[in-house]
Amino acid sequence: MLVDDALIDKLSRLSMLEFDAAEREEIKADLEKMIGFVDKLKELDTTGVEPLLHMAGEVNVLREDVPGGMLTQAEALQNAPLHNEAFFLVPKVIKKDEA
């Protein structure tokens, strides 16, 4: 994979970050090192090696689901920074298109 200015520009747009010239060169060098490392791993013979799905041998180790006490509505609301008598109050996050 070629790491060039076009790739850095695309990554900059996708990540919504701006880089100065020195940062761009540093990012380019880092990406080339990462891609080189992955290419080096492709040279390994993995015949007969099972894929690693989990870091530990145990899968889905869950605790027993034990029901506990419930909070009252007043207890649930007592530490909320904004609330009325019945609900949490949160900032509006959905904006309507004004077309």
Rank of each mutant, 00 (worst) to 15 (best):
P67F: 00
L7C: 03
D5A: 06
K33E: 15
K33Q: 09
R24S: 06
E85P: 04
L31K: 07
A21S: 12
G69R: 06
F87E: 08
N60F: 12
E85W: 01
R24N: 04
R63V: 08
A29S: 10
V61P: 02
A6I: 14
L77D: 02
A80H: 05
D9T: 05
D45M: 04
R63M: 05
E25A: 15
V38D: 11
A22G: 14
F87I: 06
E64Q: 11
D20N: 13
V90W: 09
K33H: 02
F87S: 12
E98S: 06
E25R: 12
A74V: 08
D20M: 00
A21K: 09
I94A: 11
G69F: 05
Q73D: 11
D45V: 01
K42P: 00
M70C: 10
L31V: 07
N84G: 04
E75L: 04
T72L: 04
E23P: 01
M34N: 11
A86K: 12
E75G: 09
G48E: 00
L31A: 09
V38F: 07
D9M: 05
L77T: 01
R63Q: 05
A29C: 12
Q78S: 13
N84F: 08
N84W: 02
F87T: 07
N60C: 09
S15K: 14
K96H: 03
G68P: 02
P51R: 05
L11M: 06
P81M: 01
N60H: 14
R24Y: 01
E26N: 15
P51L: 04
E32G: 01
P91T: 12
L14T: 13
F37A: 13
M34R: 15
K10L: 13
E50D: 06
K33G: 06
K42Y: 04
E25P: 02
V3L: 08
E50Q: 09
V59G: 04
N60Y: 14
L31E: 04
T47V: 05
F19T: 06
F87Q: 06
K33N: 15
H83R: 09
F87K: 09
L62K: 13
E58P: 12
G57V: 03
M55F: 15
A99Q: 10
G48S: 03
Q73E: 11
M55H: 14
E64M: 06
S15Q: 13
I94L: 15
P91V: 10
T47A: 02
K96I: 07
F19G: 01
L11R: 00
K40H: 04
A76W: 10
I94M: 09
E23T: 11
K92V: 11
